[in-house]
Amino acid sequence: MDCETIRPLLPFLLRAAGELDEQERQAAEGHLRVCPACASRLQAESRFDAAIQKAVVRGDVPAGLKDRILDQLARSRRASMWRWTAAGTLAACLLIGLGLYAAFVWRGPELPPVDLNALSGSLSQARSPDQVEEWLDYSAPSALGLPSQLRDRWDFNLLEHHYVQYVHGHAIPTLVFRKDHHRTKVYLLKQGQYRPADVAEVFDPADPSRPWKLGGDGVNEYAAVAVRERGDWKTFLLAP
C-alpha cells in the first residue's frame, strides 16, 4: 500500500474497529509503520477528530430546562388522562345508549319480507263480500298462513270495502267493516311479519268488545290487526 492509496483510508483508521476489513487494516498499518509522513498525517487527523468530538458534545444547557421538560411531560400526561377519561365516558354513554336501544326499541332481528304483492291481485279482484270471504277461505290461508276459520270472526254483511294498502313497501290486504258510525279497518298480516304490539287498538270487528291480535289454527298463525276509528281514519305505523 502506498501513500496515495492510504490517504482516503486514514479516516477509517481513526476508530478502533468496524470501518475497514482486517486485510485492509493490516495493509494500512503496515504502511504507517514505514511511512512517517502518513503516520504524522494520521496523528493530525486524530488530533482534529478528538478536538471536534470534544467541542461538539460540549455546550451550555439553558437554566431550568430539566424542570420545563418535566412540567411539559406532566401536562401532557394530564391531557392524555383527560382524553382517555372523555373517551371512556363517551364509550360508556354509547354502551348505555345501545343497551337502552336494545331493551326498549330494538325487538329483534329484521324479519324477512313476505311477498304480499302476489296476494293483492286476487283480493283486488274480489267484487263482493262473498268473493272476499271466498278469498279468505281459499287464497289467504295458503298465501298468508291465515286460518281458514278466520272469516267466521267477522260479519261480512258489515264489509264496506276492501283494498290493498301498501305499508313499508308491502301490499297488505285490508278489509274495512262498518257498523253504525264505527268503521273498523283490518290488516291481514302474517304473524311475525309485523309486531302487533305496536298497534294501540286491536279488536275483533265482529265483536268490538273482544279485541284480539293473534290467532292460529294449531298449524299456522296469523296476526290480524284492526283499528277502530270515528270519522277520519287514524293511521299507525306497523313496525316491520
Partner: peptide, 15 residues
Amino acid sequence: EEVPDPLPELDAEAL
C-alpha cells in the same frame, strides 16, 4: 489544513 500540535480547544461559537 495543517493541524497544530498540540491543538488548542476549538472555539464553541466558531464551531
